[in-house]
Nucleic acid binder design. Structure first.
Lengths: 223, 223
DNA sequence: TCAATTTTTTACCCGTGAGTAACATCCAGG
DNA sequence: CCTGGATGTTACTCACGGGTAAAAAATTGA
């Protein structure tokens, strides 16, 4: 990384490191504040003046750390996506049946969805991002989706997951899990762990009691 | 309605009716066009000039039929909510066990979520509405939620629905169902009926095959 | 202490889009 | 045919907010 040949072992830390560290810290501070606004008021309704004021600085200061508003949003969702992808990666490596791994994955996913950067994912429609960011956003989401589908396929293969369409299962799970971001309240009656536990259990075992399992849907007459 | 005392029985329809009818038709036309833009580009990113141009009129014409932009969005989501509430009402009246009624409700809900006005509900964050509209929006959603919870309670009482938390069940279902609005593509491989059928079946019966039902979630180590 | 660099501010520009005023047009009914 | 209401247009106002230029302030290294 460094261009000078002197060893980095010297006790007094090189200034450069300190500089970049504090710069990174300030970027983080901007993102943490911004994501809170985005989640509460929405991306469009949040002005960078709002964010700046909340950080006790002025708008151009923010532009010293980010190229534009889009970049801030993008880095927020990427941060969230990384935390989910990490969890997914850990689960993929873990042993067990397909169902066991899917449970772990869904549980971790649910936990993530109660935190700011992931909440931001769920609330961000991709048309809010610039075309370039949008493409990368979608690609990252697809990666996670692929991991999930692989686990589902494994589970269907080993007989622990019901042989429904893998595509429909992943959409259904993603829906229920992403939706958590919309209603979870950290001040509410249940902890994030309890919520995750409960939602996953419902998804895995279904809503029906043992008795009525497998009966077809009866739609009411007319449209 | 009319101030004149003459009977409305005359064969040639009174002009007043015609007027109000065409006015209503034009309001509808505006909404149908607007909702398409809202769903595709988002509410904030849609300008009324866009909508007007697509209808071959100018912006002030739209203001002749709606007080402001908020009113348009509000009436769109209300239209969607009414279609869901109607379905919910029909299901509530229908006989059968709690589970059977919940299945019907979820099925109808899913069908609705593939249509423009309901898609708009799912994509509309309530901070996009004015405080007044937002309150009514929430109230309508709560009504539907109450109906759903009642059905769930009935099902738990009659033993056809698993005795999980009614609140968690309704959130999980709502999430999976509302999410349909985000990914369903009428041009895609499955019809709306097939999608609804499949999602409902997964929700009711769960993802797990018979074998692995009821085993607890194992979270991967660390966070 | 002084020069160079980074960080932050003040003071702007400018495009966009909601909403309006005032004028034109079209139609009924007397 | 002429008047009044409904419908539509042109031509605007105006606030808001993303983004920038340039100067000031703070920091660092010598």
């Amino acid at each position: 990384m460094s261009t000078n040949s002197a060893p980095d072992e010297g006790s007094p830390w090189p200034k450069k490191t300190d500089r970049t560290r504090s710069r990174a810290l300030k970027r983080e501070a901007v993102m943490t504040m911004a994501v809170r606004f985005f989640n509460e008021k929405g991306f469009h309704a949040t002005s960078l003046d709002d964010v700046a004021k909340a950080l006790n600085v002025t708008k151009p200061t923010i532009y010293h750390y980010f190229r534009n508003k889009d970049e801030i949003l993008f880095e927020c969702v990427v941060q969230g996506l990384h935390s989910i992808a990490d969890a997914a990666g850990r689960v993929e490596a873990q042993g067990g049946t397909g169902l066991e791994r899917l449970k772990s994955l869904a549980y971790m996913y649910a936990i993530c969805m109660t935190q700011d950067f992931c909440i931001c994912i769920s609330r961000t429609a991709d048309h809010e991002l610039s075309p370039a960011s949008r493409a990368r956003f979608r690609a990252l989401k697809r990666e996670i989706d692929q991991t999930m589908r692989q686990v589902i396929r494994d589970g269907i293969a080993d007989g622990t997951i019901a042989p429904e369409s893998e595509r429909m299962i992943s959409f259904t799970l993603a829906g229920a899990l992403n939706w958590i971001a919309r209603w979870f309240d950290p001040e509410g009656p249940m902890s994030r762990e309890e919520v995750a536990q409960s939602v996953v259990s419902i998804l895995m075992n279904g809503v029906a009691a043992e008795a009525g399992r497998g009966t077809p849907v009866r739609a009411p007459e007319s449209s």
